[in-house]
């Protein structure tokens, strides 16, 4: 474990907490894409299949349980909670997950570290996470008003992956034969997809104006 990875995991945890706070306290999921939340639940399910078979550390297991529990809770809130679901904008959140899942699955079957079920599912989860934010970014373009909590949630979600890249550089430098091209490339694509959001988020912070994405 290194400081980059710990900060990254805490940033990721913070993003989930910000979102759960928004949904649980103000009982609203306005501006949040259910599609992205569902994709993240799938990402964690496919990535943590080894939660009962491979024990890495208590930290690792506890964090996996937290990410699984929170991602499914958020999906449950947005789908079934009688108040929260009313603020879900299903007419705007129309991105078809299947267009993201199928290519990622095919790619995972073609490019993986070992052709076993768990490994292909693990690889699929990295490819899928790289693009899982797309429905959310599309929704942001469509809904003009982005409230602060939503903006902070997306910023933290993007920042955690950028921090993971620092962790991978650190581990590549300090650990002999630590090479994992699949997470590296996926993580890079994922972070780049946040590029323009980070830019507008920074502008809104610098000029102290409401976050607006160009149409």
């Amino acid at each position: 474990m290194n400081i980059f990875r710990l900060t990254a995991d805490m940033t990721h945890l913070m993003s989930v907490i910000v979102l759960l706070l928004k949904i649980h306290t103000i009982k609203s999921c306005a501006g949040i894409s259910l599609k992205t939340q569902e994709l993240y639940a799938i990402v964690f399910t496919c990535r943590y299949l080894d939660i009962f078979t491979d024990f890495i550390s208590f930290y690792n297991t506890i964090m996996k349980v937290i990410f699984l529990w929170t991602s499914f809770s958020i999906v449950w809130y947005m789908r079934y909670h009688k108040i929260v679901r009313r603020s879900y904008d299903k007419d705007q959140d129309t991105f078809r997950h299947v267009f993201l899942m199928l290519p990622c699955l095919v790619l995972a079957l073609l490019i993986n570290e070992r052709f076993t079920f768990k490994e292909v599912m693990w690889t699929f989860s990295f490819y899928l996470e790289a693009v899982a934010i797309l429905p959310q970014l599309v929704l942001l373009q469509r809904t003009r008003n982005i409230d602060n909590l939503t903006g902070q949630y997306i910023f933290l979600l993007g920042a955690y992956r950028a921090l993971y890249i620092l962790n991978w550089i650190y581990r590549y430098v300090t650990e002999p034969n630590y090479v994992h091209w699949i997470p590296w490339m996926s993580g890079l694509v994922q972070t780049l997809l946040y590029g323009d959001f980070f830019y507008y988020y920074f502008l809104s912070w610098k000029n102290n104006v409401k976050l607006q994405l160009p149409a």
């Binding site: 995991d9 890495i56 690792n60 693990w122 630590y178 997470p183």
Partner: peptide, 10 residues
């Protein structure tokens, strides 16, 4: 020696 086949990151 941590067996590298195990994925130790979240």
């Amino acid at each position: 020696k941590e067996n590298t086949s195990k994925h130790d990151e979240l």
